[in-house]
Amino acid sequence: MFSNTTFRTASRLSSRQVSPLLKSTSVRATSSSFPAQTRSAGTTSENVTQDQAHSILAAQRKLRPISPHLSIYQPQLTWYLSILNRITGVALSGGIYVFALAYLAAPTFGLHLESATIAAAFGSLPVAAKVGIKAAVALPFTFHSWNGIRHLLWDTGKALDIKGVYRTGYVVLGLTTLSTVYLAFM
């Protein structure tokens, strides 16, 4: 708006002498004495084929800022327990899948994964290792179980407000701690 007015005034006065006031104004408005119009590639909609338009858009998209990464969000019980539920679930299911596939492949590779062999190997471990391994299995198992019940409670429409989410979250953490300790020393 401002530079347009300057441009019109400047063109009117161009044949005559330019006043010092106008000179300084035009310098402030643009870098050159006459403002050059610029158009970015995306705005020239005429004479652009569909394929060209797509490639222009695809190129523009790659320059767009990506959404912020997880580290900028405040650690909160809500999303921490949510992602822990998925991580523990994938870890537990992954363990079951790996064991079942290994058990199926064991005869081919000469491995011994019978329950008796595993129990004998586990029994020969020192007590600290036994408790540690049991805790490492019990923690994701109990957390995913208690949090699963929390999810089923939400599915009935209960405890869906912020207060309910936090209260049930702390209950899940408490129950997970107790049951993990119990199972680890069982």
Partner: peptide, 17 residues
């Protein structure tokens, strides 16, 4: 892998404890 896991668990149920 899910089909193979089911086969593996069937084997475990029938041949093991």
């Amino acid at each position: 892998s899910t089909v193979l896991v089911l086969v593996g668990l069937y084997e475990f149920e029938t041949n093991d404890v």
